[in-house]
Design a protein around this nucleic acid. Structure first.
Lengths: 120, 120
DNA sequence: CAGCTGCTTCGATGAATATCAACATAGACA
DNA sequence: TGTCTATGTTGATATTCATCGAAGCAGCTG
């Protein structure tokens, strides 16, 4: 397969056109695919722990070196961080030697909104 | 697997011992596995649409026959509904010919709480 | 420049998952 | 009883995914 060097980062608006509530019966397959991708990103224990560690860091920002002790190899950590990035849940930035990850609050808020609309 | 025909009382088999917020740095691997399973259940487009259809039905309850038109075969629908059941997101009950599914609000509220704590 | 460290990407592999057709089961009704 | 409808289960298959070791890249420091 010609693995393109496709840019890893989806446009934020493409990731979250902002989610209709789950109580909306007319949830299209297209929307379902996009929303499912966000939930799927948090549907792995390693990714959930990585995300939790970033979110719990002061300023919502953490260096990879501070969070990578989750019981899997370092390449695997990088792989999962990439998945979280592609899902729009995290953003990354290299500053000198280290790479810092931070949470994307708008995406999380959208997910929470979908769920709380159902749970009331 | 016919459950007792008792009233829909809260099951003590709580799938959700209730979730610490994602900003809790001390998220154990055990907790991560349990929480990830819930997100994973909604991490599939077909399941998300099925869940949405149940949630959007009046009373939060729907017959399988009303929601199974999601583009996959009937056994596949049954398979996904079982997954949602095992994740604690839906409960099912047979009444006569049809089987009815309803949402489990407490689980959804817990998930929303985890996310909103981060997205503040 | 050379070596070192932090992180990502590549290639391979075993496990999990989604899907369907076929079969099984449960209730309604004649 | 037997047949029909509505769901669930089984078995098989193709695809996706998580994981690792090795290699590559970027930035620091001597």
């Amino acid at each position: 397969m010609s693995n393109t060097k496709a840019l890893p980062v989806l446009e934020p608006e493409a990731v979250v056109p902002c989610c209709p509530p789950l109580t909306d019966a007319s949830l299209s397959e297209e929307d379902a695919v996009r929303m499912a991708a966000m939930f799927k990103a948090l549907g792995d224990p390693v990714r959930l722990r990585l995300f939790s560690r970033v979110a719990s860091h002061e300023g919502g920002e953490a260096c990879v070196c501070d969070i990578q002790d989750v019981g899997v190899s370092q390449p695997t950590v990088s792989h999962h961080l990439k998945k979280l990035r592609e899902a729009g849940l995290l953003t990354s930035e290299r500053r000198g030697t280290w790479v810092y990850y931070r949470v994307e609050p708008s995406v999380l808020a959208a997910m929470a909104g979908m769920l709380s609309g159902v749970a009331r």
